[in-house]
Measured scan of single mutants.
Amino acid sequence: ILQTYRAIANYEKTSGSEMALSTGDVVEVVEKSESGWWFCQMKAKRGWIPASFLEPLDSPDETEDP
């Protein structure tokens, strides 16, 4: 089962193997590399994304803190 994550910042791809993101995009993580790059898919797009640009979809938003 794939894990679902949300983009927390815009990411512009710098090579053909990467995938561009916009803040709020929801992606499915296909593979996690120890290098800190994750292979993700979103609709018909697939590519590598730095893991630091993603957060788990089920994590609470910062605005929901008590």
Rank of each mutant, 00 (worst) to 15 (best):
I1T: 12
I1C: 10
I1W: 07
L2W: 11
L2F: 15
L2I: 15
L2S: 15
Q3G: 15
Q3L: 08
Q3T: 15
Q3C: 13
Q3Y: 11
Q3I: 10
Q3R: 13
Q3E: 15
T4R: 14
Y5C: 11
Y5E: 02
Y5L: 02
Y5F: 09
R6Q: 07
R6G: 01
R6A: 03
R6C: 05
R6Y: 04
A7H: 00
A7D: 00
I8E: 02
I8Q: 04
I8W: 04
I8S: 05
I8D: 01
A9W: 04
A9M: 11
N10Y: 04
N10R: 06
N10V: 06
N10K: 08
N10F: 04
Y11T: 05
Y11R: 11
Y11H: 07
Y11I: 11
E12G: 09
E12F: 06
E12W: 06
E12V: 05
K13Y: 05
K13S: 09
T14Q: 13
T14L: 09
T14F: 07
T14K: 12
T14P: 09
T14W: 03
T14A: 09
S15A: 07
S15K: 14
S15L: 08
S15C: 11
S15R: 09
G16M: 10
G16N: 15
G16F: 09
G16Y: 10
G16C: 13
G16D: 15
S17H: 06
S17A: 12
S17G: 11
E18S: 07
E18L: 04
E18W: 04
E18R: 04
E18G: 12
M19A: 01
M19D: 01
M19F: 04
M19R: 00
M19K: 00
M19G: 00
A20E: 10
A20H: 06
A20M: 07
A20G: 07
A20C: 08
L21W: 02
L21G: 00
L21I: 14
L21R: 00
L21T: 03
L21H: 00
S22F: 06
T23Y: 11
T23L: 11
T23G: 05
T23H: 09
G24S: 02
G24R: 01
G24M: 02
G24N: 06
G24Y: 02
D25W: 00
D25T: 02
D25Y: 01
D25R: 00
D25A: 03
V26Y: 07
V26I: 12
V26P: 02
V26K: 08
V26Q: 08
V26W: 03
V27M: 02
V27E: 01
V27Y: 00
V27A: 02
E28A: 05
E28G: 04
E28W: 04
E28V: 06
E28Y: 06
E28D: 07
V29D: 01
V29T: 02
V29S: 02
V30G: 02
V30M: 11
E31C: 06
E31G: 05
E31R: 11
E31A: 08
E31D: 09
E31Y: 08
E31W: 07
E31Q: 12
K32G: 02
K32V: 04
K32F: 05
K32C: 03
K32E: 03
K32D: 01
K32Q: 07
S33V: 05
S33F: 07
S33D: 12
S33C: 11
E34D: 12
E34L: 06
E34W: 04
S35I: 05
S35M: 07
S35P: 03
S35F: 06
S35Q: 07
S35N: 14
G36P: 03
G36E: 05
G36S: 03
G36V: 02
G36M: 03
G36R: 03
G36L: 02
W37Q: 06
W37S: 05
W37K: 08
W37L: 13
W37D: 03
W37C: 03
W38G: 00
W38F: 08
W38C: 06
W38Q: 02
F39T: 00
F39E: 03
F39I: 03
F39G: 01
F39M: 08
F39D: 03
C40W: 01
C40S: 02
C40D: 00
C40I: 05
C40Q: 01
C40F: 00
Q41V: 07
Q41H: 06
Q41Y: 04
Q41F: 04
Q41R: 11
M42W: 09
M42H: 14
K43E: 15
K43A: 13
K43F: 06
K43H: 11
K43T: 08
K43I: 05
A44K: 13
A44V: 06
A44L: 09
K45Y: 06
K45S: 11
K45F: 05
K45R: 13
K45C: 09
K45V: 10
R46S: 13
R46P: 02
R46Y: 07
R46W: 05
G47Y: 01
G47C: 03
G47I: 02
G47K: 00
G47H: 02
G47R: 02
W48K: 02
W48R: 03
W48P: 00
W48T: 00
I49Y: 02
I49Q: 02
I49W: 00
P50E: 04
P50N: 04
P50R: 05
P50Y: 02
P50I: 01
P50G: 02
A51K: 09
A51F: 06
A51P: 05
A51N: 09
A51Q: 08
S52M: 11
S52Y: 08
S52K: 14
F53G: 04
F53P: 00
F53H: 14
F53R: 07
F53W: 07
F53A: 11
L54C: 01
L54Y: 00
L54E: 00
L54T: 00
L54V: 06
L54P: 00
E55C: 08
E55P: 00
E55M: 08
P56F: 04
P56Y: 05
P56T: 04
P56W: 03
P56A: 06
P56R: 09
P56K: 12
L57V: 15
L57T: 15
L57F: 13
L57E: 09
L57H: 11
D58I: 09
D58H: 14
D58G: 13
S59Y: 11
S59G: 15
S59Q: 13
S59A: 14
P60S: 13
P60R: 13
P60Q: 10
P60I: 12
P60Y: 12
P60C: 12
D61Y: 10
D61R: 12
D61V: 13
D61K: 13
D61F: 11
E62V: 12
E62L: 12
E62M: 12
E62R: 11
E62G: 13
E62D: 13
T63H: 13
T63S: 13
T63I: 14
T63K: 12
T63Y: 11
T63N: 13
T63G: 14
T63L: 12
E64Y: 12
E64T: 14
E64H: 13
E64D: 14
E64R: 11
D65N: 14
D65G: 13
D65E: 14
D65T: 13
D65W: 08
D65H: 12
P66R: 06
P66G: 08
